[in-house]
Design a protein around this nucleic acid. Structure first.
Lengths: 98, 98
DNA sequence: ATAAAGTACTTTATAATTTAAAGTACAATC
DNA sequence: GATTGTACTTTAAATTATAAAGTACTTTAT
């Protein structure tokens, strides 16, 4: 059962930064832009671009509101995103575990 | 201990195609260009470029010879490559396993 | 004998992605 | 009221990946 076909790995998830974002989001109920930025240790620009990609494919949803007169964007992983992540982890295991 | 810093993941290894190559190479004594190309299901050009990157950082070594008058390149993972792969898998687990 | 097709790659050009820098729209502080 | 800070977004530049073309043969068919 040892397959080494890299195309089995979801390309949207398999990016170091997006993988970290997804891993974080599956572990929490929801998270703000700033919280994610700090945990993932990246710049605003990077996070903005990458989390947008996850939104584009509907793996993540966002809601925007104001807290203390400041904008706060909160992100949540979707059911589809959850499934995709699980599938990704399974494929990864198949690839790596001998 | 849940960290989501994506920079912990070795960037040379974390590419779907190079990851597949490394996973294959840790599981065998050595492998030819053609064997890898078939297992990893990629084109000659892609394999050539990516395996060269692994060679550049000394994760993989190669030897070229002629068999039946045809060129055959054989690749092996190096000790450094082995360590890097192990380290990569460990970091990946930390990232993914909740 | 020679032309066509195949093997084992390498190189190069184009497309896609990532990263970094600059920009926007405020709020708070000095 | 001018500077600094927050929470992002947009754009441009650098990096990377993929696909196409090229090289140096060998084999097979004509």
């Amino acid at each position: 059962m040892s397959e080494f076909d890299y195309q089995q790995l979801d390309d949207t998830i398999h990016s170091r930064i997006r993988l970290a974002i997804m891993a974080l989001l599956v572990s929490v109920e929801s998270a703000t832009f700033v919280y994610i930025r700090e945990k993932v240790k990246t710049s605003d620009g990077n996070l903005s671009v990458h989390i947008r990609k996850l939104e584009d494919v509907k793996y993540v949803s966002s809601t925007k509101k104001f807290v203390d007169r400041k904008p706060v964007t909160t992100y949540k992983i979707s059911k589809l995103g959850h499934q995709a992540f699980e599938e990704y982890v399974n494929r990864l295991s198949e690839l790596i575990i001998q």
